[in-house]
Nucleic acid binder design. Structure first.
Lengths: 245, 245
DNA sequence: GACTCTCCCTAACGGTGTTAGGTGGCCCGG
DNA sequence: CCGGGCCACCTAACACCGTTAGGGAGAGTC
């Protein structure tokens, strides 16, 4: 019915392609979230039956791998200006807001190995900046993983209750207030600190929490860099040479 | 058939209880992983049909909430000896190995709000140590969340490909080597750093990666503490009083 | 003895990922 | 011009999943 060639439709390539699968999947993901993305719905979106998808894709897992790379396609690294610290902070902030920007992206990406070409380009770029900042090869590699893990982990952590709350129809301000009330209602003899710090524990927004952790991480990296510079002061910083001993 | 009281079986309390559900669920989780834990299998484990579970539990989500708290039941905080830094490090290490110790615990726990009493006790204890170390209330609250998010996020990140690899029947050493080979095989003109650092990127174990990140975090916290001490040197450290102005 | 409440049952609904096997149309060799 | 083969889709089915409606046995209470 839909497949018969009408006046002058696309008779040349009316077929599904792997790319068509992915872009349709992206559309469904944005519209219905990761729970709404089933093989049957994806097939329906393409005017096709579910079994047909398996001609183009081995299974759903592989589709999600492709989707992961597609989600990373339009992530842009920050401008190459400012200190290494500014650049890394911007990296983290952008990475997080990129993941938060497309619905359930973090859930799809979560822990998926086999990084696609787009993620590889970001890694390549970040490693370059880390080495240029003066980190050792081993440290640069570790830091590269660390920052990715921090961002992914944090976002994953914040996204799950977020979607649970919106499923229940409650705003995040209400959730925070409810959490505060719960903490304040605890027995003060068994949980004195939780009761005492109920406000401090519940008022920070996720943005602030993320920024706080990121800043601590950057402080730690600065310490590492200083230590490395102090231990081996020959590299690229020819100011003085304390060659005693 | 199974329910008829025989010679002298348990005629007193042959009923399911919520606790029985949870311990059976823990058993299934350990044996079959989170994907093997369905309401039907849980019911079968208890010699009962699936619909019966809904008498004791609202839905699967609530069961997972209960399971989350049960998974945290036997987590013990580190001894209260050594510097705040030693204690926090030990906290992180224990928390991670606790999650890794029971199968798929991280996947169940992931981002589940409504922390149970066991998790609350850990929070309470950690907050107490943070305040004692000299962190401000606001900082202590932030740090408490940060450390939890780091551990949870990291473990979640590492657990997913781990189970994927073991499903494929490959050891983690093979995975690392395969990743290294993939990186080395990249075009060196487009990905010079990835090719160059292929070894550094793939040799660290997850233990080392976690410890590295944790140490950077602790360094960052130390910086924060020093800054706070320098800005307001009146608190609990009565050595001298620079009361000029 | 009747009533109620607890607790488990059967049956079913509407979903899920995935596979086996069929089938129409197209291109290519003869 | 005709037949084989392959591509790309189809139908049908399997074995699951979470969840609900409604039934019914048994115990406890008035």
């Amino acid at each position: 019915m839909t497949a018969l060639p009408g006046a002058g439709e696309e008779a040349a390539t009316p077929q599904l392609t792997r790319e068509a699968l992915v872009t349709a999947a992206l559309r469904i993901l944005e519209r219905d979230g990761v729970n709404g993305l089933s093989m049957r719905r994806l097939a329906a979106e393409l005017g096709v039956k579910a079994a047909s998808l398996y001609w183009h894709v081995r299974n759903k897992e592989q589709l999600l791998d492709l989707l992961t790379d597609a989600l990373m396609a339009d992530a842009v690294p920050p401008p190459r200006r400012g200190s290494w610290r500014d650049q890394l902070r911007e990296y983290g902030l952008r990475h997080r807001s990129h993941l938060l920007g497309r619905r359930d992206a973090a859930k799809v990406v979560a822990g998926r190995l086999a990084p696609g070409p787009h993620l590889l380009r970001l890694m390549e770029d970040q490693l370059d900046r880390l080495r240029e900042a003066g980190f050792s090869d081993a440290d640069a590699a570790q830091i590269n993983y660390l920052l990715g893990a921090y961002v992914h982990g944090f976002v994953l952590q914040e996204i799950t209750p977020l979607s649970a709350a919106e499923a229940a129809g409650t705003g995040r301000a209400e959730v925070a207030r409810a959490a505060g009330d719960q903490l304040r209602g605890l027995p003060a003899d068994r949980y004195p600190n939780l009761v005492d710090l109920a406000d401090d524990l519940t008022t920070p927004t996720m943005d602030e929490r993320f920024a706080f952790g990121l800043e601590r991480l950057l402080d730690g990296l600065a310490v590492l860099l200083e230590q490395a510079r102090a231990a081996a002061p020959e590299a690229a910083d020819p100011e003085q040479e304390p060659t005693h001993e």
